[in-house]
Design a protein around this nucleic acid. Sequence first.
DNA 1: CGTTTTTGACCTGCGC
DNA 2: GCGCAGGTCAAAAACG
Length: 634
Amino acid sequence: MGLNNDESRSTEAISSQRLRSQRIELSVALPFEISSEMALTVDSGSPPQSHASNTATVASHFVSLSTNTRETDVPRTTQQFLENESRHPMNLRNGSNDRPTVEDGSPPLSPQRPSQSNSDLHNQLKRTRTEMEHMIDENQQMRKVLSLMTAEYNALYQQLVTTVALQQQQGKTEKFSQLSQVPLATALNVEVVQGNGQRASPQRSFTEHSSHSAGSERSRSATPTGSAQVSSRSPGRSKHGDKQTSPLRVKLEDDTNQKIIVQALPTVMPMDTDKAAVNMFRAYKEESSSQAIDASNPSESPELGFASEARESASQDEPSVAEQLEQNGWPPNKRMKSVLQDTSVRNARVSVRTRTDAPTMNDGCQWRKYGQKLAKGNPCPRAYYRCTVAPGCPVRKQVQRCAEDRSILTTTYEGTHSHPLPAAAVAMASTTSAAAGMLLLGSTSSSDRAEGLGSDNSFNLGTHSMPIISASAPFPTITLDLTNNPAANQMHLDAANGNRQPYTFSMAQNGIQMHAPSMMAPVQSSYYGAAKPPSGTFQMYSGNPLMVQFQGGNTARGPQLLADSVTAATAAITSDPNFTAALAAAITSILSSQPNNQLAATNSSSLGEALRGALSSHGLPITAAKKDTASRST
DNA sequence: CGTTTTTGACCTGCGC
DNA sequence: GCGCAGGTCAAAAACG
Ligand SMILES: [Zn+2]
């Protein structure tokens, strides 16, 4: 380096570090109960190739999505989405087979009238059908969004409750710090808006990140961990990293006239098609230095408010240090970054173990390798990747093969995407984000290390339900084991405290099983070591009198599908206290998962597309029923 | 020629 | 302070 090394380094060192999470503002009406009662119907009407027999019943609660929604009305943001939902009361429906497609997709054109003649109906049917095909598409996307939102909402809700409780206990002065100390989900970012409108941002603003590829503005955290300090200043948002597509916005007001804005959620904004997604990203990138927000997220409605907020500070492409100082009162490199949040954000990790020959798992995202290291204890090098879908995206992943079994690939994700994701990437992204959120919410401190990546690559977790607590585990890590190894194919959510029972996810060929702590016993007895379950089986059991069963005909394999299944599972976990709700989320997600068609190991395979066709390609009878925990069918 | 990979240097946190 | 180990940077090389 040509520069004075020490100088530049130290300066950089203090400067705000690269952001690893996006900032997305979520506005959630606290009292709003999305979760427990809602799930999207899976009725996809009559898809092109299909049996049109997809039905689902989840605890008898169904929401018929976009039944009255025209294409243009399709909510793009979760906010809108949710509003719609609340506007249209749930549509209860039984899982019936072979319903007339009209029923589901019938647009506002004209309500069905029994008196209509057959020909009229026929014509209408035609028109409707076309529209329906669009609807189906969007329906599926919505489902994903919803499942995400549900999970996230639950997490948020819990978070808020915790926070409020804390606040009540603590003096006012401590409020902020309390807030900042609450371990938020990876994607969460809490801001406190004071009465005067000024924002105190206890958390480092993710959007500060300005790392152009030029890298002139490198930054590193110099603040010692744990010395989180809350100061009130305007959020350091600006620059490209700033695009956010916040699906939801949570706003609370506490007694002190302070608004708490909880920002959350990965930008999971499913695209209509991957092509569209690509284009969008292109545009996204191009505009990365300006106000790409509107362009890339046209659906953002003004009333949501955050768009303008974003604009206001995104005016400068690359503000100089002085400018930033002016704007924020702090030089960029001295910006307060909530170390706590930072560490939370940074530390939450989700690692996924898959059996694959490909050098890296195709998760739908674009990655750029930025490093490789020989990890201790493992002859296989560990590769470091960073997301390149959007400049400044904080997400990273590490990929390493298992020392024992080289066919097992461990991919560890960290961070939350700061941009819309291609459909293909939604599954994995939401999985990791949900899992990370759960992790952070559930445990107050660290937990076990990423298995397979750490020096001890023992993934012996499977055999017992004991969480592995590694003292040398700086990061809370959730591990999804998607290998079919009966001994190890589990996911453990470990809490350092040990007072939590791990959730266990087992991946059995085509299904995924989640065991909540309360029902550990029954599960282990029957599934483990048993023959492979029927293909396409999804089961979730919980201590609650609720059981869901998913049965599909096709054999699913490949990490992609698994990833999606896990998404559902993870989403479920995320809202631990509200398992039922989570379940709904999970189901919706699962339903859209697909027995893989062409999931080549190459980068070209698109999980999203694959998923999209899932239901239509295979008329999977999906049933869910309330049952006793005891009863189960395999 | 732009983008990605490779790779050695460098940084940071941690334990001693 | 030193050494180690995990991560990251960035120049150079490779790639398409
Ligand atoms: Zn990304």
